[in-house]
Simulated assay, not measured.
Amino acid sequence: MIKRSILLSLFVILSGCSSSTNFPIPGVNDSPDIQFNKLYLRGVFNWWEATSSFNFQQSSTGWYVDVELIADGQPYDFRVSDANWTPAQTCGAKYPGQPVNTDSVIYIVCNPGEKNLQFTPSTTGVYRFTLTPASGDEVALVVSKQ
């Protein structure tokens, strides 16, 4: 009888080790924190460079960059990334060429599978690209005319 109890206890313990968990384990299941202060708007308008004028700045409504764009009917391809194109700090489209519309929230992903976003300004002028934290590996992006 004791052998049976020990065997049953071992079976229960071992079966618990093989089950999957649905709760986060700190440092294992967490997405890396996006370091907004180290992000740059990078695209065809700045030769994909990480320059100080395209570094996101903090405001009360999120992190933003103002960019002067020409409305010539052609889309501007862009992404958001740190200076080193670190995969966990590079954010973009969920699919190639995903369009960004003025004053609409779009959720971009920050992971190695991201693609270029496309924004086509309706008029020439300064546009503000604003990022705010969302959930998981996503960030909310809004582009508005200034």
Rank of each mutant, 00 (worst) to 15 (best):
N55A: 12
W63I: 00
V65I: 11
N111A: 04
V67D: 11
G92R: 07
G97F: 02
F23M: 14
F119S: 07
V12Y: 07
Q118P: 02
P112W: 14
V28L: 13
L39S: 08
P26S: 14
D66C: 10
T51V: 13
P96N: 06
D77F: 14
G27Q: 05
F54H: 13
N101P: 05
V100W: 08
A93D: 11
R42F: 08
F78K: 04
N37F: 00
A83D: 13
Y95S: 13
P112I: 07
G27K: 01
P87V: 00
A50K: 08
S81A: 15
E49F: 04
D66G: 07
S60Y: 05
D72C: 02
I70Y: 09
V44I: 06
T21I: 14
K38Y: 00
G62K: 06
P32W: 04
W48F: 07
A88W: 11
Q58D: 03
A93M: 10
Y76A: 13
V12K: 03
V100R: 10
G16L: 13
T86V: 06
Y107N: 13
P24R: 06
V80Y: 04
L8Y: 10
D66A: 04
N22C: 14
Q98R: 02
G113Y: 11
S81P: 15
Q35P: 08
P99H: 01
P87F: 01
T21K: 14
S53Q: 13
A83S: 14
G27L: 03
S9H: 10
I106M: 03
P99L: 07
T90Q: 05
F119I: 02
K94W: 13
K38S: 11
